[in-house]
Design a protein around this nucleic acid. Structure first.
Length: 320
DNA sequence: AAGCCACGCAACCGCTTCAAC
DNA sequence: GGTTGAAGCGGTTGCGTGGCT
């Protein structure tokens, strides 16, 4: 493979901030072609821009595209980003497909400049979404609850037990969170299988050291609730609103791209982002699709048994 | 008013992935 | 199946701006 030569290394190619004239030239060129760019590499020459093709693509995708939503992020968008980040990690482009009109770069910047700091202030590690050790005293606080999925999961565990927080329940809950992150961090069918195997190994390896405080079906319900109904929804007041946002998340996860704002406008659809990495997203969608009708999670330790849940996932992953 | 500093965001860099040959 | 070029992606940089001293 190796690194490909890039026109960016050509002498004389302009770098730095774009001027209005350059923006206009790029927009006019793309619009003249009905929103179809063709080759980004060939674009600068064809459009008369003294820019690297890569730079043109970035400028278009991150700034000039007509379907870009500008302005502040709403609370719902912020919660969705946090929830998606907890499941997907720094997959900014994948996260961006779930937010209409937002670019991966914009989300990445917003994460690094706003959300990350909020999480840190709330005592949450923005990378792992786990509570930072120094702040963990076993008690919930409002700031943590607002931005920390695990916190509410702990609360759920406590409620399930009908009492205060229990170390065993917390460990189980954290384990489940890790498990779901492992499953959610897929990059393809092969990795999905590996992830499932890893998840299974994780469960098997820890089942002996984690006290069996929660019954298996209680764990399953907690895990399903945490993944399928993100805990940030607890911050939304009404049940109806929760359900609406929850359904939106499920729909966009199961059918990435269906919420494109360019659906009614062929030109907008044509010029909308060419970021539909079907191979990358398919497992996420398919996995969510498998999970959706199954609010009763099966025995997570039965990967190698005859459990139909995991069998279905494996068969689906082979199919992809 | 000037200098300094922190922050936010646009843009760049380099690596990975994909597809064509 | 290997190679190569192009596009995509995520981390990082650096500049503009606003607030503070």
């Amino acid at each position: 493979m190796g690194r490909s030569p890039c026109c960016c290394h050509d002498a004389g190619v302009k770098k730095g901030p774009w001027t209005e004239e350059e923006d206009r030239a790029l927009v006019e060129y793309i619009q003249k072609r009905g929103g179809h760019v063709g080759s980004w590499r060939g674009l600068p020459k064809a459009s008369g821009l003294n820019r690297c093709g890569k730079s043109c693509r970035l400028r278009w995708n991150n700034y000039l595209r007509p379907d870009i939503k500008r302005g502040n992020f709403s609370d719902d968008e912020e919660r969705l980003i946090i929830s998606l980040h907890a499941a997907l990690g720094n997959k900014w482009s994948t996260i961006a497909t779930h937010l209409d009109g937002r670019t991966d770069n914009e989300i990445k910047n917003y994460w690094n400049t706003h959300i990350r700091k909020k999480l840190l202030r709330a005592g949450v590690d923005p990378v792992t979404h786990q509570q930072l050790p120094s702040n963990h005293n076993g008690h919930l606080d409002a700031a943590s609850a607002a931005f920390f999925p695990e916190t509410l999961l702990w609360a759920a565990a406590a409620a399930t037990l009908g009492g205060g927080l229990d170390t065993g329940a917390i460990m189980q809950a954290q384990l489940l969170q890790q498990l779901l992150q492992v499953i959610g961090s897929n990059n393809g069918a092969t990795n999905l299988i590996a992830n499932l195997a890893q998840a299974n190994a994780m469960l098997n390896s820890t089942s002996n050291i984690v006290p069996s405080i929660l019954l298996q079906d209680q764990m399953n319900k907690l895990s399903a609730a945490n993944y399928l109904q993100p805990s940030y929804l607890g911050n939304i007041s009404s049940f109806a609103e929760q359900n609406m946002v929850y359904q939106q998340l499920i729909n966009t996860t199961a059918c990435p791209g269906t919420s494109s704002s360019g659906a009614d406008d062929p030109a907008a659809a044509l010029v909308s982002r060419d970021v539909s990495p079907a191979v990358d997203q398919a497992p996420v969608g398919e996995f969510a699709g498998l999970l959706e009708p199954m609010m009763e999670m099966p025995d997570l330790c039965s990967l190698e048994s005859s459990d139909s849940f995991w069998q279905d996932i494996l068969e689906e992953s082979y199919r992809l």
